[in-house]
């Protein structure tokens, strides 16, 4: 592989854009197809399938074998609340190669010192979420316990295609949340998208344990398609 090609592939990833590297496994010939170039490529159908499934694979065309290395858009976790659980969650999520953004309008909480190596926005969720463009590769996790902050974030998340929405709080807290969001005009079908109480039930107690349960639920949601097709 030419270094330039490898470098282009890595640059697409860094810019949160999908790309596919096509390799003729006999001749070694290679080309990079960016997401927006897929439609003009002779292998358009195969490329589209690979992108949809997020899986690399070998394809045959005219007696030649091509390997398609698929790089999908990186998965991102938007965490509402620069709280203790978030301090455990952020580095664990980074370890899973997830992009992390932390949002909390309370400037005492949302400091870079408390969250090294991740993007921290000391803003209200409804101010910054539109700019973040929540897509189907994004998970939104509401952890503040404060309806003033969490509710706005959940409303925005429910209007997007994000693949996971979770909210911290007991069953009773969630019941009251449902009432507030229903009063705000959100439908029952949409409200059912919220994972609450958040996380897989592993009996988590400490902030780090809760972070594990939240991340496990995010991974399970992300991989569900694959588990079904396996």
């Amino acid at each position: 592989m030419r270094l330039g090609l490898l470098s282009d592939l890595n640059a697409e990833q860094a810019a949160r854009r999908a790309a596919i590297l096509i390799t003729d496994i006999i001749s070694g010939e290679q080309r990079l197809v960016r997401e927006k170039e897929v439609r003009e490529d002779p292998l358009v159908q195969e490329l589209q399938e690979c992108l949809d499934q997020g899986k690399s694979r070998l394809v045959e065309r005219d007696g030649r074998q091509f390997f398609l290395t698929v790089q999908v858009t990186p998965v991102r976790v938007v965490i509402i609340g620069a709280v203790h659980i978030s301090q455990a969650l952020a580095p664990m999520a980074r370890r899973l190669d997830l992009d992390v953004t932390i949002i909390d309008p309370r400037t005492a909480f949302a400091t870079p010192e408390r969250f090294p190596d991740v993007l921290v926005l000391a803003e209200w969720p409804d101010t910054v979420l539109p700019d973040l463009k929540l897509d189907r590769y994004t998970a939104v996790v509401a952890l503040t316990h404060d309806p003033k902050i969490d509710d706005a974030a959940l409303s925005a998340a429910l209007q997007s295609q994000c693949f996971y929405i979770g909210a911290l709080g007991s069953r009773e807290t969630h019941e009251r949340r449902i009432q507030r969001l229903t009063a705000a005009g959100i439908t029952e079908v949409d409200l059912a998208r919220i994972h609450a109480p958040i996380g897989l039930d592993i009996g988590a107690v400490s902030p780090a344990e809760i972070a594990v349960s939240v991340l496990a639920e995010i991974v399970a949601t992300l991989r569900k398609e694959r588990r079904r097709s396996a």
Binding site: N10, Q13, G54, Q71, V72, P74, V75, L96, D97, L98, Y137, V219, L222, R223
Partner: peptide, 8 residues
């Protein structure tokens, strides 16, 4: 989808 081979 977890793109854990990109760091490689």
């Amino acid at each position: 989808m977890l793109s854990n081979d990109t760091d490689i």
